[in-house]
Design a protein around this nucleic acid. Sequence first.
RNA 1: UGGGGAGUCGUCCAACGGCAGGACGGCAGACUCUGGAUCUGUUUAUAGGGGUUCGAAUCCUCUCUCCCCAGCCA
Length: 562
Amino acid sequence: MAGPDFERPSDFIRDIIKEDLKTGKYDGRVHTRFPPEPNGYLHIGHAKSICLNFGIARDFNGLCNLRFDDTNPVKEEVEYVESIKEDVSWLGFDWQERMYYASDYFEKMYEYAVRLIETGKAYVCDLSADEVREYRGTLTEPGRESPYRNRSVEENLGLFARMRAGEFPDGSRTLRAIIDMASGNINMRDPVIYRILHAEHHMTGNKWCIYPMYDFAHCVSDSIERITHSICTLEFEDHRPLYDWFLDRLSVYHPRQIEFARLNLSYTVMSKRKLLQLVEGGYVGGWDDPRMPTISGLRRRGYTPEAIRNFCDRIGVAKRDSVVDMALLEYCIREDLNKRARRVMAVLRPLKVVIINYPEDRTEELDAVNNPEDPGMGTRKVPFSRVLYIEREDFREVPPKQFYRLSPGREVRLRYAYYITCVGVVKDDRTGEIAELRCTYDPATRGGDSPDGRKVKATLHWVSAAHSMEAEARLYDYLLLKADPDDVEEGKDFKSNINPGSLETLTSCRIEPCLADAKPGSGYQFERMGYFCVDPDSTPGKTVFNRTVTLKDTWAKIEKKK
RNA sequence: UGGGGAGUCGUCCAACGGCAGGACGGCAGACUCUGGAUCUGUUUAUAGGGGUUCGAAUCCUCUCUCCCCAGCCA
């Protein structure tokens, strides 16, 4: 895969790896892994981790595994496994034959747990969940040792085997590590290694009724796969001593855990819990709603893998909490689409224009450039006739200062067509709304240039009324009104910041005939309006477009300032 | 008030004892058959106090602020 189109800066993780390579720590190997739990959809924050892990493997000639961290059967489903696989490969990464499940290692993990018991490092505890909590102590007070902590190895072995055999109900017993109930690090206060869960697992079915906890399963999985650098997010920093403790007591291959700051993006939310609230509360249409920061949402919105990868390269990797500006994500997709998207004319809010000096029965085919950034994309023919549509916002009966589009008496250019001058405004008798514009055209300006060299200040996009097709456009705006969605009044939550105008649906758009063959997923630039892509909701009768992102709009900015 | 982390332009990331730099955003201008794109200029930062040093964002020290941890979740 091609790298970014700018020099990728190093980062503290790559620096560590370079150092390890220099000292021969892992015999020159670099092996990472992306370890999602299949309990939800991937989002842009996961993309950061995917790009980091797979990117490091690529940069250092190493390998990156895809591993499903599926140790909690009550939350995990195959549906999520499928969507995660789709999203990772859509992003452009390839785990080759190395797709694993933590559940692949359940037998090995059981053996390792037995070994811990045998070496006096683990015990079966009969305390209930509530009691364990009570015994754990608090952030400032040490915990107390469980009364079951001193059971004999034989008794522990017997009890653990019976846990596996299904002799005990859920929650009645756990296997715990013997570490230090007075540790300032609460993770070290005899953490649970196995719990009893009589639940069907998406991979192992009913084979198991005890399941390992994350801290145990994760380090063991990394060790089994001979991962060199186990990269995770900051909240696991406290867990590193435990990660190291297990592998040290087990005397097995020991990867190095490195933590980095997760991605936060302004004007959106990233936690699975909040995303789920948006879906279940009906605030969005689903996990792949184009307003969602999920990979599937971004894909449907028209984002490309290239743009997302480039974004992940640009945001960098560090250990400090941060919030990346949504404007950077938008910059990345504009940058990508500007180079590749075919230009096309589409009128979102049509205003009828009659060219009164143009023959009624005439149609011309005008040449239009498909992408000025890439001449190789060629040209196309656009039909022109007496009755046209232009964008309603491109006409003002009383033009404000700095508005230099169409108004009575003013001349503008219709892109690739002619100069036209507005000579009349027809209004609806009842509503007073502008129903139609009367214009004249200058036949000498065919193609859009005037032989006498006179200038016009504006160029408008347009479509021929008779030749254009109807389409629907869905215009998206930020899902949340505030850059920090959690900035709310006392007693309220982020949902009070939901943007009621995050979706505007336009059903009477008029599009150029060349869009007749537009396929779902394909992206276009609607000249002057933004980048759009075809939504899967499209039917043969009506194409539905999602606005991926607007173009930078200087006029909109001027108007907003007033 | 326990433990673990982190503080650099508005935002994100660099600088690893030697001129605080880049990107995005903002502002201004040039150019333009997209008020797009492109190009140019510009704005603004080392949390605070002490110390070491010829020289400190970087080393030491004290202080302050922010984040994470009390699931049989990951």
